[in-house]
């Protein structure tokens, strides 16, 4: 990872490099939901586990898949695909659950697969462009480019806020 960062810095040239030394870098875990790539701050990630069945929570919104037993702790699982308004995930054994610490709570998010760990300078997280007429995804905090692919950084607080809808 460190090598990669160095490479990026070299490509960008000397003037930027000084800024990088001064600025902080963040590490992100990227994963995929369908064809799209998303990432979350690595500091929030507690563990990544394979999909196991959940116990359905009645009277909750449809993106809440239910709860699992994480070594005695009851953790709710959010179906990211459903949360992003792209339909219900039909999970298999290869699907992953990323356990995240958000505020005081533990939450799991259901994704298709974990891809990579990205080390990115903070100032390379770009703001989400406000496209005219297009509905903007309220859960995206910023955009990062990795291997010419766009990776969307997820805002965890909004993700679990039941009041925020897509």
């Amino acid at each position: 990872m460190i090598e990669e960062t160095a490479e990026v810095e070299q490509e960008l040239g000397a003037p930027r490099e000084i800024e990088h030394v001064a600025g902080k870098t963040v590490q992100l875990i990227s994963f995929s939901v369908g064809k799209e790539a998303y990432c979350v701050d690595i500091m929030a990630v507690r563990e990544i586990r394979a999909w196991t069945g959940t116990t359905t929570l009645p009277k909750t919104q449809d993106f809440v898949r239910g709860v699992i037993n994480l070594r005695g702790i009851i953790v709710p699982i959010i179906d990211l695909r459903k949360r992003f308004g792209q339909g219900h995930t039909d999970p298999t054994k290869t699907h992953v659950v990323i356990i995240l610490a958000i505020g005081d709570r533990l939450n799991g998010i259901l994704a298709d697969a974990v891809s990579d760990i990205l080390t990115v300078p903070e100032d390379e997280i770009h703001a989400v462009p406000q496209a005219e007429g297009e509905t903007e995804n309220p859960f995206i905090d910023g955009l990062v480019t990795k291997d010419k692919q766009m990776v969307a950084l997820i805002s965890l607080e909004r993700l679990i806020d039941q009041a925020v809808v897509h």
């Binding site: 929570l57 009645p58 909750t60 009851i74 709570r105 533990l106």
Partner: peptide, 8 residues
Amino acid sequence: ENFDPIPG
């Protein structure tokens, strides 16, 4: 602990 109260 990790989720909002659910009625019932």
